[in-house]
């Protein structure tokens, strides 16, 4: 008997996605050089913590799996060690592409679904506001991003660690540490955002 045809695929493929990545993502133009050798995913020090890894992520971009790419943990788990970029036999700036995909995921509102993005957001909030990471406020921001009850639960669960950190002077009580010129920092960041907006509009 003839084997039945597979069921109709329900997954949506956006066939213009690879082209969009090429034109809009930093380093995306070089992505067409990728030959799927696996050097990047194999070189990743936290490859086991990634759902896809860069090589598969690039294949998913080619396949047009837009939502899966933007909801992937891979773009948030990258530590920017640049192992993949240095070793890539085809000169693909893997790290740049992954970093910019994360930025685009924020821009298009995908981050709510991505667990790892919460921490990145809290980190960025602290760095932007104080010019430093304040362990207490950053952690609090991260915990309470899950909601009030969940935030309290997580905070209490880590209370012992927090006290230990205060005792060993790894965490302080009092006003958050700041850099001297937070206004200056914010001006730098504003300028960077302006340049980025201008260049990405020009399609650079």
């Amino acid at each position: 008997m003839t084997v039945a045809l597979p069921e109709q695929a329900t997954r949506k493929y956006d066939l213009g996605f690879a082209r969009w990545v090429r034109d809009n993502v930093n380093g995306g133009a070089k992505m067409s050089m990728c030959m799927q050798c696996g050097m990047c995913s194999g070189s990743c020090p936290i490859g086991t913590e990634m759902d896809q890894g860069p090589r598969k992520l690039f294949m998913m971009i080619r396949a047009g799996m837009k939502d899966e790419v933007f909801n992937s943990s891979t773009i948030w788990n990258c530590t920017s060690c640049y192992n993949c970029t240095v070793r890539c036999p085809r000169g693909v700036p893997v790290t740049y592409i992954i970093q910019d995909l994360a930025a685009k995921a924020v821009e298009f509102g995908y981050v709510k679904k991505v667990e790892n993005a919460r921490f990145a957001k809290a980190f960025w909030w602290s760095a932007k506001t104080f010019g430093r990471t304040d362990e207490r406020l950053m952690t609090a921001k991260y915990y309470f991003s899950f909601g009030l009850v969940e935030g309290m639960k997580r905070g209490l669960a880590n209370l012992k660690i927090a006290i230990g950190m205060v005792r060993t002077k790894r965490m302080h009580i009092g006003m958050p540490h700041k850099i001297k010129d937070t206004k200056g920092l914010q001006a730098i960041l504003a300028k960077a955002a302006e340049i980025d907006a201008r260049e990405s509009k020009g399609g650079a």
Partner: peptide
């Protein structure tokens, strides 16, 4: 797969590390 690296284990054997694509 293009192996990413080779490390040497405790017994001195070469160990290939990488991703099966």
């Amino acid at each position: 797969s293009k192996p990413a690296s080779i490390r040497i284990d405790e017994e001195g054997r070469p160990v290939l590390c990488g991703e099966n694509t």
